[in-house]
């Protein structure tokens, strides 16, 4: 079997069983329990929560990210195995949202991590969240959800940006 064909089959398989990582980074996390439980029930799509990053496929950034959390998120993201996908919730990771002038939240997530799907709204409704999951599945099917490849390719740039946000480059707290 040729590589391309095999890729296609693996994409079909991975789209049908996406495990999302249980990491609540911001206020959007409160709309996840309804999505996971009986009323909206995302298990119909073959999605389930997973506690460890090593077995998860989808990382959900549920809302604003503080600098302190971004460090952990990057850590967690790098532990996940490829192929891996990032969904970002709400307006905070898009442009800062209502914390646009805060000293402790990073404003634009795509400068630090590759994002595959954005869900708008403050906070997004469960229907929006599920739509994002379906959208992600469609992208995987078409082979367009390639954020993780982008992360590998532009690794240096991502690392540089992350370090700038953590303040290493500000020259004041080396040895952190």
């Amino acid at each position: 079997m040729r590589y391309e064909e095999w890729n296609k089959i693996s994409r079909i398989a991975s789209r049908k069983s996406l495990w999302m990582l249980h990491f609540c980074t911001g206020c959007g996390a409160v709309e996840l329990p309804p999505v996971m439980t009986s009323r909206y029930d995302m298990e119909r799509f073959g999605m389930g929560p997973m506690a460890t990053p090593r077995q998860a496929d989808v990382l959900l950034i549920t809302g604003y990210l503080t600098v302190k959390t971004l460090k952990r998120v990057v850590n967690v993201y790098e532990q996940m195995q490829s192929p891996k996908y990032v969904i970002s919730f709400g307006s905070c990771p898009i442009n800062g949202g209502m914390y646009w002038d805060s000293y402790n939240t990073v404003k634009r997530l795509d400068r630090y991590l590759p994002v595959d799907v954005y869900v708008g709204g403050c906070m997004p409704r469960p229907e929006g969240v599920m739509n994002a999951f379906l959208e992600l599945m469609k992208l995987i099917d078409e082979g367009k959800a390639r954020g993780w490849e982008k992360y590998q390719k532009y690794y240096e740039q991502y690392k540089r940006n992350q370090k700038m946000a953590f303040g290493f480059e500000r020259g004041k707290n080396e040895g952190d």
Partner: peptide, 25 residues
């Protein structure tokens, strides 16, 4: 301490990821 100025200095100065023209990945 000016929070807005700090946010502009630190977070807005972070460059975007420059992608190459052809998506050859």
């Amino acid at each position: 301490f000016d929070s807005k100025k700090f946010a502009e200095d630190v977070f807005d100065s972070i460059p975007e990821i420059k992608e190459e023209e052809d998506e050859g990945i």
